[in-house]
Design a protein around this nucleic acid. Sequence first.
DNA 1: TAACGTTAAAATGTTTGAGCCTCATGGAGT
DNA 2: ACTCCATGAGGCTCAAACATTTTAACGTTA
Lengths: 128, 128
Amino acid sequence: MRLKHFNVTFGEQVFKAMSDVSRIRVLHLLLRNKELCIADLELVLDFTQTKTSRHLIYLKNTGLVSFRKQDQWAFYYIKDEMLDFLQQMFGYLEKDPLLLKDQEVYQTLFSNRELAINRLQQRHFTGL
Amino acid sequence: MRLKHFNVTFGEQVFKAMSDVSRIRVLHLLLRNKELCIADLELVLDFTQTKTSRHLIYLKNTGLVSFRKQDQWAFYYIKDEMLDFLQQMFGYLEKDPLLLKDQEVYQTLFSNRELAINRLQQRHFTGL
DNA sequence: TAACGTTAAAATGTTTGAGCCTCATGGAGT
DNA sequence: ACTCCATGAGGCTCAAACATTTTAACGTTA
């Protein structure tokens, strides 16, 4: 169920969504780590909460991402049909230092169990 | 000399360049027909002269196109190192009705010898 | 378990700034 | 003078960043 073709109207939206470094960084993290909540993205990217939320709503409205509510968090993830396209896009950006650093920061925070994802996993282990 | 990787800063610029239907249509025509001058693009796309000129300067400034002066015309073309990337982009848009129509209009005008390109070729045949 | 206060997560209301269009003008070449 | 193209100024729409408010989970106490 991948998207092989789209029209210029949608294309315009998609490119506009990617025409901002903040959103590029968000999409990159979502692409490499399945899903993140607003709070975790804030932490990794060092954004304000408002900025993070706005950009994710923007991405949701253009149809690039979706989210699910679990406990107190909203976990955003890239929509299935866009994975193909975005992976191709980020092929061109895979060497970028800023994106590489973002992923490192994510890994560190995850290892240190400082993310909401960790707490979520914890709860599931303890049976709740 | 194709571009396989670029950083987010340039990526942001490129995506911003493509985040406008007018510029998408221009790039599409340049991609399929090597080079066009402002006046011809005006004619094919039904843009005002100002609008056409502004978008092409925008594309030139972001590094997607370049141009050469010949006789009274400025012929714009897609830069060599961006061909690969743009061809991949437009693979997703190849079925779009508006883009297909644009190319048809171009073909018709070209066949009817109503474009600057035609006059250019004419001059070369007659030896200037 | 009902009620209160506290904190965390996310969304919304507002203003400033950027991008696109049009009209009009300017300049270079034939 | 005519053609082709570029640029300046003004108006309009949309998006980014600010601070603030809503929503909901949690803990304690009784």
